[in-house]
Nucleic acid binder design. Structure first.
Lengths: 142, 142
DNA sequence: GCTTGAACCTCTAGTAGCTAGAGGATGTAG
DNA sequence: CTACATCCTCTAGCTACTAGAGGTTCAAGC
């Protein structure tokens, strides 16, 4: 029987976060002591590890919910899990492409700045005038 | 004199977002008609363009606030603006590095999945067992 | 058995950067 | 002068947590 603090240390998840996962139904309600404190077993430790690892790979909580559901049904075809992972891979690749464009633009800005007054600052100038951009970077967000 | 809708179209910013920027003090309070509707001038259009362009380059609203302040003081040395841009560049590079590691791991997962039952699914297996990972990917978040 | 203090509990509110909707007022074209 | 697109304010919601207040429980040491 593990306390929430032990689970926290073993998985590198903050205590509050574990309770949050329970609240949104990602973690099951654990048993309680007479005094009302949560006690976990190894199945729940595994589940939390799964969640954490998936988060580290960038999966959304919704995606993780799907993956956990699939994981609970061993006889279903694994295409769905595969599709979720592919979707995630695609997202990561899109984000990388966008960041690459941003990096190009930022590098250019920084390199052109010669360190005078803000009035002549290339950085600010580029930000003021989008038409100076060489790359497209239309989307906002990570 | 531009309505908020016109400003919205010209900058590709949602009307609600413009009002939000005003609320948090990033955009100045504009003039109003007798009936209370906002009316903007070209200086405000420029400011909003600056904000939007900076957002597209991934700057946080706080960073943009600093950049706008600097932009308003033409005689200060531009080192600060330069530093903000460099900081942003660094962040972008860090995020790229992390995404690269994620991509590697996701690719491996997806390629190893041979399409059987979920019980044998490589995707789920990898998620279950962190020790199978070849790459480090300790941080959560974009 | 009793005390102490770390760890637990619930609840609320805050973070970034918006976005959506309710319910009502205004402005302008025909 | 009417219709209706656009505007107004206000509140609440999104993701994925995180922090803190104020109070209770557990386990170890004496």
């Amino acid at each position: 029987m593990l306390t929430i603090g032990t689970l926290s240390k073993k998985t590198g998840t903050k205590v509050q976060t574990i309770r949050y996962y329970e609240q949104i139904g990602l973690m099951p309600e654990p048993g309680r002591t007479e005094g009302g404190q949560r006690r976990y077993d190894n199945a729940q430790l595994d589940r939390l590890s799964f969640i954490r690892h998936s988060r580290q790979l960038g999966f959304s909580l919704d995606a993780i919910r799907e993956l956990l559901d699939l994981s609970d049904q061993p006889n279903r075809p694994c295409e769905e899990a595969d599709a979720i992972a592919r979707r995630q891979l695609k997202q990561v690749e899109q984000r990388m492409a966008r960041l690459k464009a941003l990096r190009t633009e930022l590098k250019r800005m920084v390199h052109e700045c010669s360190g005078g007054r803000t009035a002549d600052c290339k950085v600010l100038e580029v930000l003021r005038d989008h038409s100076e951009c060489l790359t497209e970077h239309d989307e906002i967000g990570a």
